[in-house]
Every structure is written in structure tokens, then in C-alpha cells.
């Protein structure tokens, strides 16, 4: 399976999903006006990737800013991973990186950690 990559820009995050290593990474800022359009291909890739059971996946979020509509998309990604872990013998670890002192980004991570049943690390950088 092909890896998935999108270069980041001012308002879209860098996306690096590596099918071989199972490391999926989203980094930067996310405030595209039409997040359903932007995230469409990302979800298609994920759905293909999660077809096969038993994978070990590391999901890294390294966001410096995201808007409310991206926040919905992130929850959808996490929910997909949660379902994968529950139904397809997957092992998922989520690393939520936040800039030290960014109390809001830390809180966002804490809320996601409460929303899904996944191993969730909150990591300052």
C-alpha cells in the first residue's frame, strides 16, 4: 500500500501516513474553510489502511492550531482508530504533542483522551 503525504501550508497541516511503519502523523495548522473536502482523501486512505486487521499504529498529532471544524475531523479519525482497536485486533497509541505552556492545546488533548478508549500520551515539546 502507498504511503500518504500532503505538504503543509499556512492553513493545512502536513500529513504523513506511513503504511509500512504504521506511524501516522498530522502536524502544523489546520483551518481549511472546507475541512470535509480537505480531509476526504485522508479518510479514504485510512479506510483502506484499516481493512487489514492486527496492525500496530502510532498516531501523532503535533498541532499548533486547528479550528473547530478540524476538531471534528480529528475526533472522527480517533473514532476510526478506536473501532479498529476494538474490532480488528489493532493496537493503537496516540501521541498528542503540545507546545510547552500552550494550556489550550493540552486541554484539547485531554478532552480527546477522554472521548476515546485509546492509549493516549500527552507530550510537551
Amino acid at each position: 500500500m502507498e504511503n500518504f503525504h500532503i505538504d503543509g501550508s499556512t492553513y493545512i497541516p502536513r500529513i504523513d501516513f506511513n503504511a509500512e511503519t504504521g506511524v501516522l502523523e498530522i502536524e502544523g495548522e489546520s483551518y481549511h474553510e472546507y475541512t470535509t473536502e480537505f480531509f476526504g482523501p485522508i479518510f479514504s486512505w485510512l479506510e483502506d489502511y484499516l481493512e487489514e486487521s492486527g496492525k500496530e499504529i502510532t498516531m501523532n498529532f503535533k498541532m499548533s492550531y486547528f479550528n473547530t471544524s478540524s476538531s471534528r475531523r480529528f475526533l472522527e479519525i480517533l473514532t476510526l482508530l478506536e473501532e479498529y482497536q476494538n474490532n480488528k485486533e489493532g493496537q493503537v497509541v496516540v501521541n498528542w504533542y503540545y507546545e510547552e505552556n500552550d494550556v489550550d492545546m493540552l486541554e484539547s488533548g485531554e478532552e480527546y483522551a477522554d472521548d476515546v478508549e485509546l492509549t493516549f500520551n500527552l507530550l510537551p515539546y
Partner: peptide
């Protein structure tokens, strides 16, 4: 407010509206 935010975020995307319905809360 925090509870309401998380509850609304879990609710399905509204038909025909691109927004997340979270703006005021945020």
C-alpha cells in the same frame, strides 16, 4: 460548556452546513 462542546462535537455533521456548529462555544 466543556461538556456541551464535546457533546456537540460527537453529534453528526449538520446536513448542508460546512461548519462544525462549535464556533460560539469555542
Amino acid at each position: 460548556l466543556k461538556e456541551f462542546y464535546r457533546e456537540q462535537r460527537k453529534a453528526p455533521q449538520r446536513e448542508g452546513k460546512p461548519g462544525a456548529n462549535l464556533g460560539f462555544i469555542d
